[in-house]
């Protein structure tokens, strides 16, 4: 089932063109990695999908979900560095997508607790968020994102600043959410190696044209051959 369909999307970053006629789609169960050089509009495109930034032309269509049912893992902000908040408070704040409510219901609390356990952060749920390691923080933000959705996760460069071990661990967690729990994943990343290992689809955004297709198709493109070597003709 198709979740998102983007057709010929154009977007600006400040006043320069960032996204130039991108077309792709996300089906339920997909693990799509958006790769490409800096400045090719990957994060801007993500913001367009989330409705955080205006799309100049083209269409983004949602079927089966509404756009506030997307779980979003944003890039870290400067505010969060010294923000006093416990892990539980952060995860619970994901439970707000269903309109206005005065306080969290017991269903919200249960959902938050379920996701805390799912991501293995039960032992640190009363700890302050800003004192956690980078990997632990990403788990907390993933748990928060899962409170907002069980259908689609959008991750914006989640492994930036993480060491290789923690990066591998994060990919394993996201992969498990995708395969075992059926959450579709869209991830913006610079990490090509892990992308082709875990994803089933690749959107490669380059200044001279985009590629969208399955990982197998991507590996046959000249760009991928240049990076991975001609031998890996998967």
């Amino acid at each position: 089932m198709k979740l998102i369909d983007c057709q010929n999307v154009y977007m600006n970053y400040d006043s320069t063109k960032a996204v130039n006629g991108v077309s792709f789609s996300v089906d339920s169960g997909d693990f799509l990695c958006i790769v490409g050089e800096n400045g090719t509009g990957k994060s801007t495109l993500l913001k367009g999908i989330l409705g955080l930034q205006k799309v100049n032309s083209g269409t983004i269509t949602f079927t089966g979900i509404v756009n506030k049912e997307i779980g979003y893992l944003p890039q870290k902000t400067a505010v969060q560095k010294d923000f006093p908040a416990s892990v539980r408070e952060v995860v619970l704040s994901g439970c707000q997508s269903r309109g206005f409510r005065l306080f969290y219901t017991s269903a919200d609390r249960k959902k938050a607790q379920k996701n805390i356990e799912l991501l293995g952060i039960d032992g640190i749920k009363n700890k302050p968020f800003n004192e956690l390691s980078g990997g632990q923080q990403q788990r907390v933000l993933l748990a928060r994102a899962l409170c907002a959705t069980d259908k689609l996760l959008l991750l914006d460069e989640p492994t930036t600043g993480l060491d290789p071990f923690v990066t591998a661990e994060l990919y394993r967690i996201v992969d498990e959410l995708n395969k075992k729990h059926g959450v579709a994943v869209v991830m913006v990343t610079h990490d090509l190696k892990n992308s082709v290992q875990y994803a089933n689809k690749i959107l490669c955004m380059e200044h001279d044209g985009d590629f969208f297709g399955t990982v197998d198709e991507y590996m046959k493109t000249p760009a991928a051959r240049m990076i991975f070597g001609g031998g890996t003709n998967a």
Binding site: K68, S93, Q96
Partner: peptide, 22 residues
Amino acid sequence: VVFYNKIFAVTFDENFARATGT
């Protein structure tokens, strides 16, 4: 008091809050 949870969400992470419909 009424908007306490929303105020937390918006202060902590404005982009996430907007993306989830706040």
